[in-house]
Amino acid sequence: MTTFGNLEDTDIDVAIDEQEAGERRSMELATRIRMVAAEDPELAQDLVDELIVALDRAMGGTFREYLDGDARDVADRALTDSGSDNSPARDS
């Protein structure tokens, strides 16, 4: 890694395409949620639950279809707790 003044070459973040830009934004979001979790795990869980509910709503109730294992269990709990468990995907 090369340092130029206060700028490191790893600080230069130029997205090649929209998919890569989206992946980088999602990684940044995950990092921020981890930082919140280190300070306040309950708040971090609430944020994750709200995000799951919003994603499920935006995807027409199909978000959980893209998950498996523990991630699906977490989504099921969040959606049930929010009253969103009547999505079409719940019947699968």
Rank of each mutant, 00 (worst) to 15 (best):
M27Y: 11
D40M: 07
V74R: 03
N86E: 13
A44H: 01
G22S: 11
D49Q: 01
L7S: 08
I12V: 15
A30K: 00
L51M: 13
R64V: 13
E50I: 01
R32T: 09
A75L: 04
P41Q: 12
D9E: 14
P88V: 11
G5M: 02
E23L: 07
L29A: 14
D68G: 09
A15Y: 08
L79W: 05
D76L: 02
A15C: 09
D81N: 09
D46E: 12
E20H: 05
F4P: 00
D56K: 06
P41H: 12
G69I: 04
Q45F: 06
L29V: 12
T3V: 09
S26P: 00
R34Q: 12
A44D: 00
L29I: 12
E50A: 00
V74D: 09
S84A: 15
D91N: 13
S92C: 09
D17N: 09
E8Q: 15
A15K: 07
L7H: 07
A71T: 03
G22H: 08
E18H: 10
L55T: 06
A75M: 00
G83M: 07
R57E: 14
G83F: 13
I12A: 15
D76T: 13
E65V: 08
R25P: 03
D46Y: 01
R64Q: 11
D68L: 00
E8A: 15
Q19F: 07
Y66E: 14
E23D: 06
R25S: 10
D46N: 10
A30I: 06
G60P: 00
D91R: 12
A21L: 13
T3W: 09
L67D: 01
D17E: 10
V14I: 15
R64T: 08
P88D: 07
E42W: 05
V14M: 14
D91K: 12
Q19Y: 07
R64I: 13
G5L: 05
P41D: 10
L67N: 05
L51F: 01
L79R: 04
E28R: 10
D13G: 09
L29S: 10
V53Y: 03
E42Y: 09
D56G: 11
T3D: 11
A37D: 06
D81M: 06
L67V: 02
D46F: 01
F4M: 08
S82N: 10
E8S: 15
D73T: 10
D17C: 03
V53A: 00
A54G: 02
L79Q: 00
N86M: 10
E50M: 03
A38Q: 13
N86Q: 11
E28G: 04
A58K: 05
A15W: 07
T2C: 08
A89K: 05
